[in-house]
Design a protein around this nucleic acid. Structure first.
Lengths: 200, 200
DNA sequence: CGGAGTGGATTC
DNA sequence: GAATCCACTCCG
């Protein structure tokens, strides 16, 4: 027969503000043994079902570096055969669908909006995925970020052939002189605001 | 004007057992900054006047090894010219007079007694010095430890001539058959005791 | 130095 | 007397 003793409980409670948790801890030793201490803490949202994404690409792919065992056991890059960058997995962004960034208190950041000039491309790609795709390209890529080069219909009919994994999931964008002028204006405005803020 | 803040104190305290020390350490950072941690430790006896002995022999003496600077900067022994052992300083034991061995808590070990058969030799040599001399010879010497070979009067009249620096400061000892038998008995007894102790 | 966990004073 | 709260200890 199992002798079950509940020693610790932690749960959200209707009387408490949203996401606050009540924790009951029994004292296990000492002259106050058996008494209960209550702790209240704001919990971090965690569905449990949200498993963080893991690398799914098989290791049969060429690796970005070639390992030479020298006397000092260091790793040397194989410059001779060109940049052997590991091929990007197509549509890797979909592995992050359903996940949301949050601050340290568990509050999710508000969704960002896709600028009107940007047209998403690809089968069943939603706005959040496209934004992730663009943001990653801007942060990580060493090439100009210009978008896909094919037509929308071609790209969605046969993405395995026509999608360029080095470009984000958007149709090609061309910056007009007008776009450049407006961006320059925005930068100038931001600089003025910063200058004023620094004066105070 | 100096702003003096005492951050650390260490002192013996009347309420504490002899030689125990109380140490107060202020926490300097973190959310518990300013709080005090107390440490108690048994102090080590230290007269300050007891300066440990340092090597006093001049470097004009031949050295036990000859240094060759090889590529690996290692030291090679000069076997070719025989064992160039550095001459021992006569009466080096006297440099340790007044010093006592102690355990890690500072408690001095009890004095050892010189066996009755052992006769010390040398000018102004006390028992503690003789014991050190014998113990060092037994631990360090690669030769049989038999004591000095001259007579007591000769040795003390002109130690610079007659003292053998490779032998301890005792008159020659001869182990009789009786001595050997008694030592064998002691060893046998010690082994029996060990065997009994291991049984339990 | 932080944090879990307890003693004990204080409040209800 | 129970509930609550805070200070403190002690260990990693």
């Amino acid at each position: 027969m199992a002798n079950i003793t509940i020693e610790k409980t932690k749960y959200e409670c209707a009387q408490l503000p949203k996401r606050w948790q009540r924790e009951e801890v029994f004292r296990k030793t000492g002259i106050t043994v058996g008494k209960v201490d209550l702790y209240y803490s704001r919990g971090v949202r965690n569905d449990g079902s949200l498993v963080p994404p893991i690398r799914q690409t098989a290791s049969i792919f060429k690796q970005p570096v070639t390992v030479y065992r020298t006397q000092e056991s260091k790793v040397k890059t194989d410059y001779k055969n060109g940049n052997q960058e590991k091929p990007k997995q197509l549509m890797w962004e979909k592995r992050l669908e359903g996940l949301l960034a949050c601050d340290t208190d568990g509050y999710e950041f508000e969704a960002m909006e896709l600028p009107k000039g940007i047209k998403s491309v690809g089968p069943n790609v939603n706005d959040a995925t496209v934004i992730r795709s663009v943001a990653t390209a801007l942060h990580v890529s060493s090439h100009p970020v210009t978008g896909q080069t094919g037509t929308k219909s071609l790209l969605e009919k046969n993405p395995g052939v026509f999608l360029d994994p080095k470009q984000p999931l958007i149709l090609g964008v061309n910056a007009s002189d007008d776009d450049i002028r407006r961006q320059e204006e925005r930068v100038a405005l931001a600089r003025r605001k910063l200058q004023e803020a620094l004066k105070q």
